[in-house]
């Protein structure tokens, strides 16, 4: 019986604890919030005027085109003469002949194209293209080489 008196007192004390804590929830604090917030806002793009057919786009010695299509870049970008018909991002049919890329923030080199594909958000805040840095670096380089060759 004395044990029960003790338990009752203990419970009374414990109650002071509850008053401080927030409710009876056992685990509101499970896990940690998903770290990456997507800072991507999407706004309309300007469509490029139709260009003459370029079948040179199908030449793919380094496998860059098939990597481009395999990873879904074609969902947002067009490369004329290929299966890429996306209209969310700029038309890349003649990327190699531009003077600058990333809306003018980067020089048009193979290395800069690769850097843009991996982390466009670092180079252009508010960019509407997701980062692809989870691809193997060699794949990104092969894609960049292919795009740079599109004259």
């Amino acid at each position: 019986m004395s044990a029960n008196v003790g338990l009752f007192l203990l419970v009374g004390c414990a109650f002071c604890f509850f008053a401080k804590s927030i409710g009876w929830a056992a685990a509101d604090e499970l896990g940690e919030p998903r770290a990456t917030a997507l800072g991507l806002t999407i706004a309309p793009t300007t469509l490029t005027a139709p260009q003459p057919d370029n079948s040179a786009a199908l030449r793919d010695p380094g496998g860059g085109l098939s990597l481009f299509l395999r990873n879904g870049c074609g969902a947002c970008h067009t490369i004329r003469g290929t299966n890429a018909h996306g209209t969310i991002g700029p038309d890349l049919s003649h990327l190699g002949s531009r003077t600058a890329i990333g809306a003018g923030v980067l020089p048009n080199t193979e290395e800069a194209i690769a850097r843009f594909i991996a982390r466009p958000d670092l180079l252009k805040p508010g960019v509407r293209m997701p980062a692809f840095d989870m691809l193997p670096q060699t794949d990104i380089q092969a894609i960049a080489r292919y795009l740079k060759a599109l004259q």
């Binding site: 309309p44 870049c73 890429a84």
Partner: peptide
């Protein structure tokens, strides 16, 4: 396209 939703088929 007008709402920037990409074609699902691309992936």
């Amino acid at each position: 396209p007008e709402r920037n939703v990409p074609a699902c088929s691309g992936c």
